[in-house]
Amino acid sequence: MAKVIVKDLHKSYADNEVLKGLNLEVQDNEVVCMIGPSGSGKSTFLRCLNDLEVPTEGQVVISGYDLSDKGTNINLVRENIGMVFQHFNLFPHLSVLQNITLAPTQLKKSSQEDAEKMARDLLATVGLSDKADAMPKSLSGGQKQRVAIARALAMHPKIMLFDEPTSALDPEMVGDVLDVMKKLAADGMTMIVVTHEMGFAKEVADRVVFMADGQIQESGKPDEIFNHPQSPRLQDFLDKVINV
């Protein structure tokens, strides 16, 4: 069964319908990139996948757990989905190491000792071995985002969600973060990435989804989307993005 199944997803804020019936399936090990104009509902969609937003209508099934089912323990589902935010959201009162070990130790996934060992391994993977005892405010944006990725990975998630992870970064930092994400993809992580980095989408994505006006307008292999766009909406969007 697919890792992520979304059926006829609707989301409204008061009278404003932001998501107008989305359908999507993501398979194991698949990397899906979502692109689309600002305000089209990409973040909202992503947040519906781990219940940070509650859909108005429709169904979301993650690794077999139906989120709309009252009996589903949402905290258990969230342990299986890591999320990385545009603004990192590191915990400023905790050191880098504590940021990473907080959830595994609090949720009794591992002992303090094991969690710290794992945290150091993860920091090595994202290239920040020397920053274990630093406080978040002393890190650059790119370093913060890599810590945030390590923090999410510490729960051993089966799926990772990225919401414009490089949008808040200085251009010279973007590469480091994208490299970490490429490594993750190569290791077989199931990923949904909202991004404006078309180069990353072309290179890494198994599938690219174009969203506009609260709906999926087009989806397909990177080559189909970027080189043979079908709808005028997508052509228009690509023109704008590439001309920037």
Partner: peptide, 8 residues
Amino acid sequence: EAARSLGL
């Protein structure tokens, strides 16, 4: 949101 998304 970050804390909750970690499953806390």
